[in-house]
């Protein structure tokens, strides 16, 4: 209970700080739209290859963009932790009854809430672009949840890296190293049947793809809810693992104090 309360207070602090950065808000709103519109236009005709489950590429793409946006956001989420480490804010919290878990969780929750807000914006824009989600409100919820969970799972990873390296340059390198490869090893932009076989196999182990599959399942016809449930569950488990790992990396940071 205390952990939840402390986490929430720290999330509020981060949210409030972000709201003081007008440029950040503009970026947060515009960037996901750019993904959807640019990719949607660029690959519009790719559905002719077949295997997409729909003739409308933007319908195929929209739920995956929510997940991808959550993923990209997560790979950078450790930057806020590095800033707090540099300004000794973390050190001050560590000398209070606040648990290490809530310090890590607050970063992850903040990151996931950002992903959720952006996800809603993406879905509204895609609605305007003609995308229809036949599973209704539950479908919306699943897509947003998939985006949040992919975000949380990787945010936990990113927080751990931040605590281990405590350097912005390293964070940027890791984010770049992880970002595009995992995106291309998933069915985010293209139907799985159009991917080379080895990539299809690799995608099975890619958490980004788990999120894409859950989110897309509720948009395309013939929704199989067990596929949705299973992939969301996998992501939840991964989130637990990465956030527990990030909390453990606090030991490495504290040894430097």
């Amino acid at each position: 209970m205390t952990v939840a309360r402390h986490t929430w207070f720290m999330v509020l602090r981060q949210a409030r700080n972000l709201m003081r950065e007008p440029i950040w808000i503009v970026m947060m709103v515009i960037q996901p739209m750019v993904w959807l519109i640019l990719y949607g236009q660029l690959f519009k005709n790719v559905t002719r290859l077949g295997g997409f489950g729909t003739g409308s590429y933007v319908t195929f793409l929209a739920p995956a963009i929510v997940v991808m946006n959550g993923f990209f956001g997560a790979t950078w989420s450790g930057m806020a932790m590095i800033s707090d480490l540099e300004h000794k804010v973390v050190e001050r919290f560590l000398a209070t009854p606040a648990s290490r878990l809530s310090i890590v969780l607050s970063q992850i929750v903040r990151s996931a809430l950002t992903a959720a807000i952006q996800g809603i914006i993406i879905l509204i824009v895609s609605l305007a672009l003609g995308v229809r989600i036949h599973t209704g409100a539950l479908g919306w919820l699943v897509i947003i949840l998939a985006g949040m969970l992919v975000n949380s799972a990787f945010a936990g990873f990113s927080q751990g890296i931040a605590l281990l390296t405590r350097r912005e340059a390293t964070m940027i390198a890791v984010a770049n190293f992880v970002g595009l490869p995992l995106l291309f090893l998933s069915s985010t932009m293209i139907a799985k049947s159009q991917m080379p076989h080895w990539m299809q196999v690799a995608a099975e182990f890619n958490p980004v793809d788990w999120g894409v599959r859950a989110a897309r399942e509720v948009v395309l016809p013939g929704t199989d809810w067990s596929v949705v449930g299973w992939h969301l569950l996998l992501l939840l488990a991964l989130t637990a693992v990465t956030s527990a790992w990030a909390t453990r990396t606090f030991r490495s940071y504290q040894r430097t104090l």
Binding site: R5, H6, F9, M10, R13, R16, N17, R20, D84, H87, K88, V89, E91, R92, F93, A95, T96, P97, A98
Partner: peptide, 25 residues
């Protein structure tokens, strides 16, 4: 504990910093 290097959150106000610290305590 008042650390050697200031541990305040530069992006928050003085009051917000104090309120958060109090809540955590």
């Amino acid at each position: 504990y008042v650390p050697q290097d200031s541990g305040v959150d530069g992006f928050g106000t003085g009051r917000e910093n104090l309120m958060l610290q109090g809540r955590i305590q």
